[in-house]
Amino acid sequence: MAQRVALVNNKGGVGKTTTTVRLAEALAKTGKRVLVVDMDPQGNASRRLGWAYNPDDAKATISEAIQADRPGAVASVVQPIGWDVEYASRIILAPARLELENRMSEAGVVGAWRRLAKGLEGADDHVDYTLIDCPPSLFHLTQLALAAADSVVIVTEPEYDSAEAAGRVRDFIAQRAVELANPDLELAGVIVNGMQNLGSHADQLAYIRETFGGLVWDPVVRHRSLIVDADGDEVPLSEVRGDKASEVRATYELLAQTMVKAVPTR
């Protein structure tokens, strides 16, 4: 049975999707089997994993699985990713399209916040980790993820607005997990992304460490253009070349090791 981890922040642009994709890659390289559930209607995680919607051969996505409102529905939308590397076979994807926005209108329907949890029942028993990439919100789509997750990892940048938004996520979990019928939901860690050699970043990193203490995972992810390039080109980091390529790969591999320790498989 998978450990389900939601990657969350209440602010956009902090690197949630990049972190989700690169943790999935690093975990798969160690032999772990990973399901990525794309809960962001932008579908960026899906695209970066090499998936593309083909209207001539249309396949259902996570939106249809949630709409189905039945146990195990996610299994019917899971697809392979598009990378051509050996470990890609250990990553599977429940992709998203903009149509996922339509699920927002169901926020007031009784029990709708449980539909992802219900859809994952039995659908991820054969993987080690289910990583759920959330939109930059704490509303319905993210609540679907939080109701289904075992743990939350906050992804933030060392900037004031991002750090404040991370605090809102922490408080939301503490105050609302019971209302999502998930009282055991825990904050497993905080990943700091996009670190640069700026005085303001150093100050905000110190603030994040003071606020979250031992929950801040090391190493911090440095801002590197090759990460942006890999995301844009929809390729794994193992195919990236450059002076900092080995450093970047090592960063995510160490973070994946931390995840395995913080959220051990069952």
Rank of each mutant, 00 (worst) to 15 (best):
K11L: 05
G12K: 02
Q204Y: 13
K11R: 15
L7D: 01
T156M: 08
S225M: 12
D171F: 02
G122S: 10
G43W: 02
R33I: 06
I154V: 15
V260P: 00
I81G: 05
L198W: 10
V78C: 06
R22C: 00
L180E: 09
G108M: 08
L27K: 00
I132G: 02
R114W: 04
A149Q: 03
E25V: 09
V37P: 02
G189R: 12
V178K: 11
H223L: 11
T251K: 01
A145P: 00
G13L: 06
P236D: 06
V221T: 13
L254G: 01
V228K: 05
E210K: 14
A28V: 01
I208C: 12
K261S: 10
E99Y: 04
V110W: 11
G13P: 09
F172G: 06
G214E: 15
L120E: 14
V220K: 10
G43N: 08
D69C: 07
G214H: 10
L131D: 00
Q143A: 13
I154P: 05
T258W: 07
G119W: 02
Q3I: 11
K16G: 04
I191G: 03
E247M: 08
S46H: 02
N102H: 09
N193D: 07
V77G: 11
D161P: 02
L100E: 01
Q204A: 12
P55M: 00
L23V: 07
N10V: 03
K118M: 15
A148H: 01
I227V: 15
D184L: 11
L98N: 08
F212E: 01
G232Y: 10
R249A: 13
S200P: 00
N182H: 10
S76V: 05
H126T: 12
A112I: 05
I132K: 04
V240K: 07
V190K: 13
V34R: 03
G214Y: 10
A117F: 04
R48H: 11
R224T: 09
A174F: 06
E164G: 08
W51D: 03
E210H: 13
L185S: 11
L131V: 03
G108A: 10
V21L: 06
R222D: 15
E247R: 04
T19Q: 06
S162A: 15
A2H: 01
P95M: 10
M39Q: 07
D184V: 06
E186K: 14
M195V: 15
N102W: 11
L7R: 02
D125P: 01
R70M: 07
V109L: 13
M259G: 09
I62Y: 00
V36P: 00
R170K: 14
A123V: 05
I132H: 04
L144D: 11
N193L: 07
M195E: 03
G31M: 13
V8G: 09
L100F: 04
F212M: 07
V36M: 04
A45K: 03
A96P: 09
G108Q: 12
H140V: 08
V14P: 10
E186I: 01
G167Q: 13
R4E: 12
E210P: 00
R70K: 14
T30F: 06
P158G: 03
Y129W: 11
V228A: 15
E106R: 12
N182K: 03
S238T: 15
R266S: 09
V74W: 00
I173L: 14
E25G: 07
G214S: 13
Q143F: 04
P135T: 06
E106L: 13
